[in-house]
Structures are given as C-alpha cells and as structure tokens.
C-alpha cells in the first residue's frame, strides 16, 4: 500500500524532474536574460526611448473613438471582477460609482480642455443649471456619443434633479438576474456625474435607478441629490 501513491498525486509525480527543477524552468518560463536584450538593442542609439505622454496631442480625432463592443467586453469584465469582491448589491454599486468617479474627473478636465483651450479667456460654469445642461449634452456626448434623453426636477424635493437615459450604452448588453433586480450598473455613470459636479464645486450624492417603461425596458434615471451648500450658493446668485 505504501508503495503505490494515491491516484490523485500521479499527475504531480509523472512529469520528468527536469521540468520542475529551478534551473530548467527558469529558461523555459522567465523572460530572456539581460545580455540577450543588450545585444538586441545595441544597434539603436536610444534603447529606452518610449513614447512620451507629453508628446501625444489631446485633441479628439476619429481614431480616439472606441468601439461599443470593446467597451461592452471591458465593462462586463469590470462587473465580474467587482462582483467577486463585494458583499452585496450596495457594495457593488458603490464600487462601480468609485470607478466612475475616477473617470469623471478626467472626462471633465479633458472635455473642458478640448472646448476651451483655443479661446483667449477659457470659462468655467459656475451656475448649477448650465452645468446640469452641459452634463446632459456635453458629458454624455463625450462619453457615450449621444446626449441624454431628459432632465427632470423633483417635485417633492427641491434639491433633487434627474438625468434620464432611455437606452444607456453602459448597460445595453447587461441582463441583471432576477434576484439582483435592485442593481443598476449605471452606478458607473452616476460616478462620472458625481465627479463632474464635484470638480465644478457642486458637491452632491449621485445614484442610479432602473426606471423601465414599456417602450424602453433599459431606461435609467441618474438621481442627483445636491448638498445644502449648493442651494444656498444658488440663492446668493439671485
């Protein structure tokens, strides 16, 4: 009995020892050793001249657009990755929001640069309603290639505004299982909106909610709940 190992170990014991020994495995799996690189690049004058981010233009050209399917694949991986690391729907939405926030800060800065850098006196929006309009059209166009479908103001609460997208690009290829029906992957978009508002000095809590209607089953509402300080500031402008 001791002579025969259990069958499940047979896979490990069967390969020849040289495959597992460190000396051989290093030549098989690791990167080529140093001298090989040196000889390969000896002819070129600058072996380490990588393209520099400061040399790349920031302007929008046709090739800077990304295909929707490539984005859908990436976003699907993001959701899967997150889902393995969270404890519930709220946690997942929060994480997607955080991710969107990081993108939103960059979108805001880049969008403004593209729009204003040519002008002699670049402008920033300082009133809330123009900012909301610009999120509805400019930010949506910059990120999703089309403007959002509607802006609404809450009737009950004066600090709440909604941006409505009938067919959000982000969730177009996502079908949420029935037991997670509360989940809205547009939290990612909400994060982008939150970052844009924050950057321009309108701190707010932004969340995403599914609001399907018959014609648009994917219809999504981004709910913006402004902080009190923003409303007070708007009062001062009047």
């Amino acid at each position: 009995m001791s002579a025969l190992p259990p069958s499940r170990f047979s896979v490990l014991s069967s390969p020849s020892p040289d495959l597992l020994s460190p000396t051989n495995s290093s030549t098989r799996f690791s990167l080529p050793s140093g001298p090989a690189i040196a000889t390969a690049t000896a002819g070129t004058p600058k072996p380490l001249s990588r393209p520099n981010i400061y040399d790349r233009p920031l302007n929008k050209i046709r090739t800077t657009e990304v295909s929707a399917s490539a984005f859908a694949f990436l976003f699907s991986e993001i959701v899967q990755y997150m889902q393995k690391r969270v404890s519930g729907i709220n946690d997942l939405e929060r994480r997607l929001n955080t991710l969107g926030y990081r993108i939103g800060t960059r979108v805001l800065e880049l969008m403004a640069w593209r729009a204003e850098s040519a002008s002699k006196a670049p402008k920033r929006d300082i009133r809330f309603l123009p900012v909301l309009m610009s999120i509805h059209t400019n930010v949506w166009k910059a990120v999703f290639g089309k403007p959002a479908d509607a802006i609404e103001k809450s009737v009950q609460n004066e600090d709440e505004y909604m941006i409505i997208d009938n067919d959000p690009v982000v969730t177009r290829s996502i079908s949420v299982p029935r037991d997670m029906s509360q989940l809205s992957c547009s939290s990612f978009t909400a994060g982008i909106v939150e970052a844009v508002l924050d950057g321009l000095g309108f701190p707010a809590r932004v969340t995403a909610h599914n609001t399907p209607v018959d014609d648009f089953p994917l219809r999504n509402t981004i709910l913006i709940k402004l902080e009190k300080s923003v409303l007070e500031r708007e009062e001062l402008f009047k």
């Binding site: 400061y54 920031l58 800060t105 960059r106 800065e109 880049l110 640069w113 850098s117 002699k120």
Partner: peptide
Amino acid sequence: IRAFFAEVWELYVKTMMN
C-alpha cells in the same frame, strides 16, 4: 502669464490622463 498658464494646463491634463 496667460500663455504660460495655458501651456501648464495642457501639460497638467496630459499628466492627469495617466
């Protein structure tokens, strides 16, 4: 100064995209 700031802004945006 205006021209200087405009150039620094561009450099900053590029840094931020990283």
